[in-house]
């Protein structure tokens, strides 16, 4: 009897063991072909002299890396870091505040607010950028006309080196806050309600509840949200391409856009690959650091 049960138990387990690998195989094979293989090819390219118009040249050693690091890299890293820090910080504060307001127990009009505030998530960055290019146009845009009504002289929103980065941050905040809001709001809704109720019955103020109950409970969600947004912001390309092309001068040039400019304007594939690979390393290191602080917290 026990023997029968044991053998009957073995066969399906073996099936399952084989089956799980068959289930995973297609995904692993596809990702190896479309992600790992091009990545390895790109690393190889970064060590080659390769200018599209001349074709593949000699092995360059670290030549491409030395060239790009000594050239514009300090500037584009600084721009990328400023942009990422400003966008993530502002978007988080706005999104968390709005999520808390939306999560109040009795709030008439909640579904309307949610509906409107989610629209930007669905928009392609190209459309967002075009919209604001029109509105911020120095002569034909409505923004300069509106501030003119208040007596403020017209501004070159994307043309003034002192304003351009700020304007790009504004457009990014307009576009990306929604996604953070959605994630934080979903996290608040999934939070157990008993601790907040208990604190309220004990006479805690709204601020006390926020600081000592909601914040600790939400911490994992907040960390994941910040991580996801930070990784995306470090890769910023679309908005830069559409809004400023990295200008004026190099005031808004990010690492991604720099790699694009080297590869597809200057046709230097070797250097472009080197920059893109450095970006990958930066993103990986920052992610690991953030994951570690998350685990400690």
């Amino acid at each position: 009897m026990t023997l029968v049960a044991a053998t009957a138990g073995i066969t399906p387990r073996r099936h399952r063991n084989l089956a799980q690998y068959i289930f995973v195989a297609p995904t692993v094979i596809v990702l190896a072909l479309v992600v790992a293989a091009p990545l390895i090819y790109s690393i190889y390219l970064s060590f080659q002299e390769y200018i599209i118009t001349y074709g593949m040249g000699d092995f360059a050693g670290l030549g491409n890396y030395i060239a790009v690091l000594s050239d514009d890299f300090a500037n584009v890293s600084w721009v990328t870091l400023k942009l990422t820090a400003l966008c993530v910080a502002i978007e988080f504060i706005v999104a968390f505040g709005l999520a808390l307001l939306l999560n109040q127990p009795h709030l008439p009009g909640r579904s309307f607010y949610l509906l409107v505030l989610m629209i930007p998530v669905l928009m392609t960055p190209v459309a967002v950028a075009l919209m604001f290019r029109l509105m911020f146009n120095p002569t034909l845009g409505i923004v300069n006309w509106l501030i003119g009504l208040a007596g403020i002289p017209p501004q070159g929103w994307f043309g003034d080196p002192n304003l351009a980065l700020g304007t790009v941050v504004f457009v990014d905040v307009w576009h990306e806050t929604s996604l953070m809001l959605l994630m934080l709001y979903a996290g608040l809704k999934a939070m157990p309600s008993e601790p907040v109720e208990a604190a309220r019955i004990d006479g805690a103020s709204r601020l006390q509840i926020l600081l000592y109950v909601t914040w600790p409970l939400m911490k994992p969600v907040i960390m994941v949200t910040l991580l996801i947004r930070m990784i995306a912001a470090l890769k910023s390309y679309d908005l830069i391409y559409m809004l400023t092309q990295g200008g004026p001068g190099k005031a808004t040039e990010t690492i991604s856009f720099y790699a694009y400019r080297l590869g597809f304007r200057f046709l230097d594939i070797g250097q472009a690959a080197a920059v893109s690979f450095i970006l990958l390393i930066v993103v990986t290191i920052l992610t690991l650091v953030l994951l570690r602080t998350m685990r400690e917290a």
């Binding site: 990545l39 990784i231 690959a273 690979f277 970006l279 993103v283």
Partner: peptide
């Protein structure tokens, strides 16, 4: 079944971190 052990979810997450500019260059060629 935890196929691929603890490495698998990390590997999946890592592919999502990949900046598109890294892949666009080799794909283009």
């Amino acid at each position: 079944f935890r196929t691929g052990g603890p490495v698998m979810p990390l590997a999946i997450l890592a592919t999502q971190m990949m900046p598109p500019i890294v892949l666009v260059i080799p794909f283009f060629l």
